[in-house]
Each structure stands twice: as C-alpha cells, then as structure tokens.
Design a protein around this nucleic acid. Structure first.
Length: 621
DNA sequence: GTAGGGTTAG
C-alpha cells in the first residue's frame, strides 16, 4: 500500500526555532486544561477513591480485572481524571485492546508523550500501520514533539506499508527533533529503508552510525538478504564478526536466506554446521531456515532429513516443508505432509494453503487442488485470498481448462489483479491460445502496463505462431512503456564461490572452453534427436542464427562450466532467476543423458531434476 | 518504554 505523499502534515509546522515546540511542557493551555481543573475540584473522598483505584490498576494482571476497575472509575465519575485514564489506557494496550485504549485516549485532554508513544507502539506492533501513521500525524498536529521512543514505531509502520516517501519525511522530522544518532532510531531507519527497497539509503544511515550493536548490523544484513543483495549479506555477516559482534539467531536467518537465494549448497552446509556449533540448532526459526536453505539449494533429502529430526515443529516449519516438496514436484508427498500436520493438531494458515495448492499445481493434481481449495473455507475457516485464486487459476490453466479458469476469475469474490490474469496468460502460452491470450493481456496492460514479464509472455505466444510483426509490436510497446525485460542469468556454486552467467556471456576466463564444450555437445545431442525449439528466440531471424542464440542461454553456459570443472558423478546445480527456457529444458534432458550426470535446475518457480534424458517435472511447468 | 526474524502464487 502506498501512502500518498501529502499524507503527513507539512513539515514547516514543526520548524519553529529556537524552541521547536513552545506549547509542550510549560504550556499555558495545560495550566488551564479542564482535566487539571477537575482534579482541583476533587473532594477529599474523591481523591482517596482515585488513589485506591490507582493502586487497583497496579494489580491488574488480566483484562477482565482491568475492565472491572475501569467500570469502577466510571461509577465513581472519575473518568476525567487524566492520571487514571492514562494508566487504564496503557493497560488496555498491554492486553492488546488498542481500540479500547484509543477510546480512552481521545477523551484525555492533554495526553502525555508517553501515552502517545504507547499507543503508537501498540498500533505498530499489532501490524495496524496505517492507524499508527495517522496517530503520528495527529501527534504532530497536536504539536507534541515526537521523541526517540516514537520514531522507531512510526518508521516501523512505514516499513510495514513500504511507504518510502512517508518514511523519508519522518527521517527529516527526526533529524530536526535531534533524534538521529540514536541506536534504536537509526536501526529503525535502516530497517525502514531496506523494507521499502532502498538499500543504498539504508547503507548511508548505517555508515553514519557512530556506534553499532548487533541489531544495527542485523538490520543491515537482513536488508541486504531480503533485497537480493546476497553477496553483500554474506560479506556483511563476516564484517560483523570481525567487528567483534557475536551473531545471534536473527542474523543467522539472513545468511541462510542468502545461501538459499544463491543456491549455494556448500556455503549453506558451512552455515548449518556453524548453527549447530553456536547452539542454535534446536531453535525452530533457525532450523526452519536451514531446511528451507537445503531445499532451495536443491537437496530435498537433506532438508527432509532435518525436518524429520526436528522437535516442536510449528505451522511455519510444516508449511516450509510442504512448499519444498511442492517446489521439487513431489505433490503427493506434500499432501501427505499436510495430512500429518493436521493429524498432529497443528492448525494450517493461509500460507500453508498457498503451499498445498501450489504443490498440487506443480504435480498436475487438479482434483486434489480443487478439493483443498474448497476445504479451506469449509473445514478450516480460512477465506481464500488472491494468491489462492492465482493457484487455482494456474491449476486449471495448466490442465488445459482455460475457459473454466476464465469463468473462475470472472466469478471471484475479490477483484482479480495482474497476477491472477497473469496465471491465465501463462496457460494461454502453454496451449498457444492466441485469442484468449490477447484478451487477457489487454486486461493486464489496462491494470498495469509496466510489467515486462507479461509482455514477454504475449510475445512468446505470437512467436510460437511466427507472427513476427506482432512480436515486434509488443517489443516496441514494452520499450515505450519503459517496461524493460529483466535480464536472465544463471548461478552456479564452485570452489566456494558463486559464478553468474548471462545470455551469451563471455566474461568468464574459461569462456572459450565453455563455448567449445557446448559446440562439441551439439552433434551427439542432434544424434539423439534434439531439435532446437526456436520459438523461444524473439527475433525474426534466420533459423540457423536462432539456434546459435539459443545455444548460449545462461543456463547452458552455467551447466557447461559445471561439467568442465567437476568430476563425473557429481550433480550439477544451477539457479536461474527467470523461468527456464523451453529449448534449454529440452537440451538439458539430452545433455544429462550424454554426460551421464544429474543436473538440477532451480528456476523462478520450481526445480527440474534432469537425469538420463528425462526431467522430474514431466515437461509440465 | 523502544529495534532486527523462519513458510507464500505467477
């Protein structure tokens, strides 16, 4: 959700040097405020009751008790006593009843900064970010100077909403309030910029920090990991250790994520042993991250082995394992896991269902998927969200039921977004349905014309039918809209390093060797029946040139590099940032047979295990 | 009185 730029009140209102907030503190309004007047008018017995109630509030350890004391305040007509109301409101926040706290807060005439902060923290930690920012705005409107306790929560709310512009405004506010150079505020700034996707800004804040503790380091490391700066994540983790800051469970989660993103199995194994050595092996969060890392690095076996040994598995751990089996094309096993999870009284959540439905989709389990979709609301009381519908559309689409998928989209109770139509467009590409594909693409471009991936899908449909004029038209449309195609690349880990290959990449020192290796493979591949699938080249060029263009796709270059540099029998593991190309998929099947190697390719959606001329996905992806 | 956090479609 984007917060409009004008969401916050103009900052000029805050800038009133030399005293920024003349009305805070010795304010003339507070001297004549009604709450104070009422306190003055209290009779002796009233004061006594107020004191008694105050001590009762002190002993409130349960919500019900608090409600009783609150009733007592009303019965004794003490609801205008700001001290009692403040105390009551704070206790309501403690018991997660922010709305009750807010009702009380609104009746307090001159709430103290502490109460503003407590309420702001309440909204922010409960994930009610918009309300938190509204409160922050109101705070400024009331000329209450936000302090170092307010900013971390205001910034956390911006982070939660990915509201970069608002976050930048608050950054300015805190500088003017003299709150920069605070350990907590700066860590929150690093986190806000990272979660809004501006890692460079996060780094600038980090670099300016005079003192950094474990949380500041972890905020930066986590920012790198979640924004795909995987190399930096690992480097920063080392830097942190060299700075004598001892990693904890949270910092370990980030490095494990980076290994998973890179598909760096050896590095991931090293971190697994580090996790065990440092005593975090039985931590369910860390253990889940290790399992996820193994699965995403292509080793479902290691991941499952660890899972079976782990005690106290929660819903996230189960969901991660279900997702891993789904990603590797083991739909039946994913379903089995779901059954075991329910049997063990672990309640599935909406993410679990996304994992189950996606697993069904990757394994052609149409009926099962439809059944689980229905059971979500019928048996588990979970209302399907957009991504569940996207899975169902994908499931129907891949099964060739394109019209059924379209009807589903049109009858959905939620407004479909580009991802829903995108699932259907993907199915149109698989089945070469140009009519529907054009209609669907129209809807997508109407909703968001800037996404390159959907333009590529549409142009693939045209290319498959040799409609080169239309291919060129879509390409121009794409360029005109500034929707630039994401460059495809493939990663391979070797010798404790991750190597990256782009299309037609010649930057690697072994480049010559790699290209000649692929040329050598061409003859035996053809002999076994490989025919280049030239639909996957967008240009209207001669067939021979298309073949050449295809043979240097990043996945083939990475595989050739792996085959040249590793011994027979060692599986080759590749990670690709986009969906694997159809021609490469076919070529790798032949390569696996010729060189007698297992080749495991992770693309942006799933795993492909190539062995002896076949792929685990059964050509269904 | 405050911060960083494991699973998720296409």
């Amino acid at each position: 959700m984007r917060i409009p730029f004008h969401f916050l009140k103009p900052f000029e209102r805050l800038v009133a040097p030399p005293n920024l907030f003349p009305y805070v503190g010795l304010s003339p309004t507070s001297i004549i405020s009604p709450s104070i007047s009422i306190n003055i008018l209290h009779t002796k017995s009233n004061t006594k009751t107020a004191l008694q109630i105050s001590s009762l509030l002190q002993g409130c350890t349960h919500l019900n008790r608090l409600k009783l004391v609150h009733a007592k305040i009303i019965v004794h007509s003490l609801q205008h006593d700001s001290h009692l109301s403040t105390k009551t409101a704070i206790l309501y926040v403690t018991f997660h009843c922010i709305d009750s706290a807010n009702l009380l807060f609104r009746k307090i005439l001159d709430p103290c900064t502490y109460l503003w902060n407590i309420l702001l923290r309440g909204y922010a930690t409960e994930g009610r970010f918009l309300q938190a920012l509204k409160l922050y705005n109101k705070m400024i409107g009331a000329r209450v100077k936000p302090d170092k306790f307010a900013f971390p929560f205001a910034l956390k709310s911006c982070a939660g909403l990915s509201a970069l512009q608002t976050g930048k405004q608050i950054h300015q506010h805190l500088i003017c309030c003299g709150c920069s150079n605070d350990l907590f505020v700066d860590a929150a700034l690093v986190d806000m910029y990272s979660k809004c996707g501006d890692v460079e800004a996060a780094r600038l804040v980090f670099d300016k920090m005079a003192v950094r503790d474990l949380v500041s380091w972890t905020s930066m490391i986590s920012g790198y990991a979640h924004n795909g700066y995987n190399g930096e994540t690992l480097q920063f983790f080392d830097l942190m250790r060299y700075s004598d800051v001892k990693p904890n469970r949270v910092s370990l989660l980030s490095v494990l994520l980076a290994c998973a993103n890179l598909g760096a199995l050896r590095k991931g194994e090293w971190f697994h042993s580090y996790v065990i050595q440092t005593g975090f092996g039985s931590d369910i969060l860390v253990a889940t991250a290790v399992m996820d890392m193994y699965a995403k690095c292509g080793s479902l076996e290691l991941s499952r082995h660890l899972f079976d040994q782990t005690l106290g598995k929660d819903v996230v751990c189960w969901s991660a394992m279900i997702a891993s089996h789904g990603m590797h094309g083991h739909g039946r096993k994913a379903i089995d896991l779901f059954g075991q999870m329910v049997e063990q009284d672990v309640k599935p959540n909406h993410v679990t269902f996304t994992c189950v439905l996606s697993a069904c989709s990757h394994s052609r389990l149409l009926e099962e998927g439809q059944r689980y979709f229905k059971s979500m609301s019928n048996e588990f009381g979970i209302v399907p969200k957009l991504n569940h519908y996207a899975c169902l559309v994908d499931l129907l689409g891949r099964a060739g039921k394109l019209l059924e998928a379209e009807t589903l989209i049109e009858s959905m109770p939620i407004e479909p977004d580009t991802s829903i139509w995108g699932s259907l467009l993907g199915a149109c590409r698989i089945y070469g349905n140009l009519d529907l594909g054009e209609r669907v693409a129209d809807k997508i471009f109407h909703l968001d014309p800037t996404q390159a991936g959907y333009h590529v899908l549409l142009s693939n449909i045209y290319a498959a039918k040799s409609r080169w004029v239309d291919v060129e038209r879509v390409r121009e449309l794409m360029a005109g809209r500034g929707a630039n195609k994401i460059q495809g690349f493939s990663l391979i880990e070797f010798n404790n390093q991750v190597f990256k290959f782009g299309v037609g990449d010649r930057s690697h020192p072994q480049s010559k060797k790699i290209y000649s290796y692929l040329e050598e493979l061409a003859a035996p591949m053809r002999h076994l029946g490989y025919v280049p699938l030239t639909d996957f080249v967008l240009h209207d060029i001669e067939d021979e040139a298309k073949e050449v263009a295809l043979s240097y796709h990043s996945e083939k270059l990475a595989i050739a590099f792996g085959l040249i540099n590793t011994n027979p029998g060692i599986p080759i593991r590749i990670t690709k940032n986009l969906r694997i190309c159809g021609d490469c998929h076919s070529a790798i099947k032949f390569i696996s047979k010729i060189v007698n190697r297992i080749i495991i390719v992770r693309d942006m959606h799933r795993f492909h295990h190539f062995e002896n001329g076949a792929c685990s996905c059964g050509d269904y992806w």
